[in-house]
Design a protein around this nucleic acid. Structure first.
Lengths: 156, 156
DNA sequence: TCAATGTAGTTGCAATTGCAACGATATGCC
DNA sequence: GGCATATCGTTGCAATTGCAACTACATTGA
């Protein structure tokens, strides 16, 4: 069954699961919120004024919008994020990271970064990181072209 | 914030999500079961006699045991898998793929393989696949050593 | 022998996710 | 303008997942 080709993919999936699982474990052990919160907070903090439109944040994180809605619900309930609405486009909704959100993100970052370094980055030869990163970017980008946004009739 | 180092990881996560999402989309479109079923069926079919112990299969797939229990429940209900028990160790339970399971796996494989090829493999230069695969294997392996199995008191 | 501890698999329940559909706007076209 | 169509964000409900506890069996060591 294609002796070694799809093996890269299988290993990819396994590596993803094991690293994520370990990050979750260490965060929980430290009494911190789950992995998904970090990504969302960073997605906002890296945006202009710590703010992004909902659908844009969903795209950045590559998660579904209805899931983002409820993730932001949880973050908002904990005071880590604030919602607001646009004057221009009546449909638009924004989420912004709060000061408390920034503090928490930094705290999570310590565990997050060290775990990724230890379990993931350290196994990739430095001179391969660029090639690796490029390939992954092409992958994600093309995957989105191929289907993820087709729902929105971007092509077809 | 570490300008480009963890970027590999972010891209890794995004690539994973987008490819998985697209696989799920195409499987559903073809009226086939979700991605997880494929992996489980292949995990069994690739084992001796198409059979594995439950906890072994969970390790191969890098998923939690309680999730495997219920995944196998679903597969069994559809006649794709059969459970059996060991004579020797009274705790042991096995799962085996059935003929129907093999047929379904092959059907899913067509969509699965072409999607992975198109969205993932084709973006990795052939001469980098080995390095890529090796790095991923180290990653997954070490992650397991580091924590995943610690629950079972393998060290510490 | 038998208590203490470890392992395998499962289950109840709560949290999260996926799907389909909705209400509210916005845009294109006549 | 006004209708058809598209987008945005959300919600109800069903399916899946995560956590903690439990049953059953195995192993260890006094």
């Amino acid at each position: 069954m294609s002796s070694n080709e799809p093996d890269v993919w299988f290993r990819f999936v396994r590596a993803h699961r094991t690293v994520i699982r370990e990050i979750e474990r260490r965060l929980a052990e430290a009494g911190l919120p789950p992995y998904a919160w970090y990504d969302a907070l960073w997605g906002l903090e890296s945006g202009p004024e710590g703010t992004r439109r909902m659908h844009e944040l969903a795209d950045v994180l590559a998660i579904e919008r209805y899931n983002l809605t409820r993730l932001v619900d949880r973050l908002e309930k904990d005071g880590l994020v604030m919602r607001s609405r646009s004057d221009g486009d009546g449909r638009a909704a924004f989420a912004s990271i709060t000061d408390a959100g920034r503090v928490l993100r930094k705290k999570m970052w310590q565990i997050y970064e060290s775990t990724v370094d230890e379990l993931f980055l350290s196994h990739i030869e430095p001179e391969q990181r660029r090639a690796f990163a490029d390939a992954l970017e092409r992958t994600a980008g093309l995957a989105m072209d191929a289907g993820v946004r087709v729902r929105g009739r971007r092509k077809g």
